[in-house]
């Protein structure tokens, strides 16, 4: 009895001497660590999905040096023709005032470029493109009328960027 336990102790002492690090179980720790690493790497990637569109504000605050030489800008006016109903995005029924809402299909927008009025933003942007090609010095102004949402504006800016029109400025007042 006594002999066996002594022998065991001896053996374990010998083991400690030969490979002291081997006694610690590293595998689970390394597993967890790698999982954490992968998790943080993945979360970092998701964020880069977000993008941005460049736009400009009118720089009218200071005295303009060449304001007399500036040609009249091309204005694209976004107007709400039919407001549509606010619905709950999950259920599709009328919005109750809780959480997010969306507009239903009855919502309609019109886009006015100069005297012409369009119902499709693509056509309006095509017209802006024509005008801009005639006189590239004319800047493009976006006039979002009351009732328009951020998404409506983004759609116009996105379409304009797609056809190569950049440097869009904003106009209009919040009042």
């Amino acid at each position: 009895m006594l002999g066996t336990s002594k022998r065991r102790r001896d053996r374990s002492a010998k083991r400690n001497e030969k490979a002291p690090q081997a006694e610690m179980e590293m595998t689970p720790m390394i597993d967890v660590t790698f999982l954490l690493l992968i998790f943080f790497m993945c979360t970092l990637q998701f964020r880069t999905l977000e993008g941005r569109l460049a736009a400009y504000l009118p720089k009218d605050t200071g005295p303009a040096l060449r304001s007399a030489l500036q040609p009249e800008p091309i204005t694209i006016e976004v107007r709400v023709a039919a407001t549509g109903l606010r619905v709950d995005p999950r259920t599709g029924v009328a919005w109750t005032g809780q959480g997010r809402f969306e507009f239903d299909g009855a919502r309609e927008l019109t886009y006015r470029v100069g005297p012409r009025q369009y119902t499709s933003p693509e056509r309006a942007i095509a017209r802006v493109g024509e005008l801009h090609a005639q006189d590239p010095l004319r800047r493009i102004k976006l006039d979002a009328r009351p009732g328009t949402t951020y998404a409506d504006v983004i759609q116009v800016v996105d379409l304009a960027t797609r056809v190569g029109l950049d440097g869009i400025t904003f106009t209009g007042s919040s009042e």
Binding site: E50, G51, R52, A54, A55
Partner: peptide, 9 residues
């Protein structure tokens, strides 16, 4: 005077 408008891709 420079604005960036965030959008999702």
């Amino acid at each position: 005077w420079k604005v960036e408008l965030a959008a999702s891709r």
